[in-house]
């Protein structure tokens, strides 16, 4: 069943990318999406994510993400353009209470796009964050500064 959902999603992406409704393109799209889903369909996470409540939270999450992305870029621009660079880099550890793998991955992605932080690795519940200006080395405080804004929303989407 998973493989069929995965094939349908692949086919939609194919149609959007080619945007050509001749029968040759559509046939090729069906063949390619079936072929891909034969191998990678098992990795698909299932249809559970597509419930209305989760999609609502996702739509709420997107503007927040774009906002943090723009803030991050202005932050990088300021640090790079200043003649004497203001950096104090280091790798700190934070702890998350998200349980699912997809939730952790999205948290890591979001942290990479926020100002001055970048995920290095995830081991169990702990994320290792490279921080361009380390303001605290304590685990609890660092978690509060870096991850708390995203964690609350991601919990509604993925758990």
């Amino acid at each position: 069943m998973r493989k069929i959902y995965f094939a349908i999603i692949c086919f939609i992406v194919w149609v959007l990318l080619t945007w050509n409704f001749g029968w040759q393109e559509l046939t090729m799209g069906v063949v390619v999406s079936l072929f891909v889903s034969l191998f990678f369909g098992d990795k698909f996470l299932g249809i559970k994510i597509f419930s209305p409540v989760r999609i609502g939270w996702m739509l709420y999450y997107i503007p927040i993400w774009i906002y943090y992305c723009i803030v991050a870029n202005i932050d990088v621009a300021k640090r790079v353009l200043r003649p004497k660079m203001l950096i104090k880099p280091g790798i700190v550890k934070i702890r998350t209470n998200l349980k699912t793998d997809l939730g952790k991955v999205m948290l890591a992605n979001s942290i990479t796009m926020t100002p001055g932080t970048m995920t290095v690795d995830i081991l169990g519940d702990e994320l290792y964050i490279h921080w361009i200006y380390v303001s605290t080395e304590q685990e609890v405080e660092a978690t509060k500064i870096i991850a708390s804004a995203f964690e609350k929303i991601l919990k509604h989407i993925f758990e």
Binding site: V92, K93, V134
Partner: peptide
């Protein structure tokens, strides 16, 4: 750099 927690773990 001030700290490297990843090196230990």
């Amino acid at each position: 750099s001030v700290v490297d927690k990843y090196e230990e773990d």
